[in-house]
């Protein structure tokens, strides 16, 4: 399972395909064409536990992430929300001691089943990180490179179309169309984050995971990303981890609240408290623990 020792600060485009792993199951290959045949949600976790060595970081998480919705994961530090997010595209495999028990079904197929190629998983389930991390390359190459690594075989003109399409989807095209050869690092923080979203989109995933994507951005750039998320959900399912509860309230369709508890050995294990429609969670949460957290009377 721990197929590589690369650091965590990489995303879909960053990883070369691993020829030793076989291709994804058929159910996943045709996933985008026939999602309704694959099960109720785009991703479903069943009794998922995640361990780092002996330490159980999150326990017994069962969730169903709906198609074309934005799902937000909130909760205090250490509640395991980022761990859960990273388990959804096997990003935790990059941590040598990490282990995931239970099932994570993507279009009904377990992504942790033997023979599943984690690189293919990460192509289909893209990721955007807290700190914008464009490659030190041109804006054009930031997008083209990932596509090439993932086996893009089209002509130069096709590649230009792909880059333009990805930049348009990330609402960045108009700002960068005249400087595609400039470095991605020359852009502002908000633009860099949208470039990373364009890079994730270019590999044609159907799920985008976002881990605190706005925490390094100013309020205006944050609102632009949120607006972009609302546009992207037409074509993608989005799962976002955020410390900003107002952000979860503004953009998400469903919100999951995770909490953390001490076990008998003094270990802190995260668990899912409530996964409800966002309007419901922020007006009348089912659980007292949720109410205490979102109203700021936590701890």
């Amino acid at each position: 399972m721990n197929d590589t020792t690369e650091t965590l600060s990489v995303d879909t485009a960053d990883m070369p395909p691993d020829p030793t792993l076989t291709a994804a199951p058929t159910a996943m290959k045709n996933a985008r064409e026939t999602p309704e045949e694959a099960g109720p949600g785009v991703i479903e976790t069943k009794n998922m536990d995640v361990f780092y060595g002996d330490f159980k970081a999150v326990a017994d998480v069962s969730m169903n992430f709906a198609f074309n919705e934005i799902s937000a994961l909130i909760g205090p530090s250490g509640c395991g929300k980022s761990t859960v997010l990273r388990s959804l595209n096997r990003m935790n495999d990059l941590i040598p001691t990490a282990r995931t028990d239970g099932e994570v079904l993507y279009h009904g197929a377990n992504i942790y089943a033997p023979g599943v190629d984690p690189v293919e998983i990460r192509r289909r389930i893209g990721m955007v990180f807290q700190k914008p991390n464009p490659f030190p390359k041109s804006i054009f190459d930031n997008i083209a490179w990932g596509a090439k690594i993932n086996g893009f075989k089209g002509s130069k003109a096709d590649m230009k179309d792909l880059v333009e399409g990805a930049l348009r989807q990330a609402a960045l095209w108009d700002e960068v169309k005249d400087k595609l050869n400039e470095s991605g690092l020359s852009l502002s923080g908000g633009q860099q984050q949208r470039l990373c979203i364009a890079r994730a989109v270019a590999t044609q995933p159907d799920v985008i995971l976002m881990d605190e994507p706005c925490s390094a951005l100013d309020p205006i750039a944050t609102l632009r990303i949120e607006e972009l998320m609302l546009e992207l959900k037409e074509n993608y399912s989005i799962i976002i981890v955020t410390h900003n509860m107002q952000q979860a309230a503004r953009v998400s369709d469903r919100t999951a609240f995770f909490n953390v508890e001490l076990d008998t050995k003094g270990q802190r294990t995260g668990y899912l408290v409530e996964f409800s429609p966002t309007d419901q969670l922020f007006t009348s949460p089912k659980e007292k623990a949720t109410e205490d957290y979102i109203t700021g009377r936590f701890g």
Partner: peptide, 9 residues
Amino acid sequence: QQPVAGDLR
């Protein structure tokens, strides 16, 4: 305060 839940209600 951007209240939520019981505070908002």
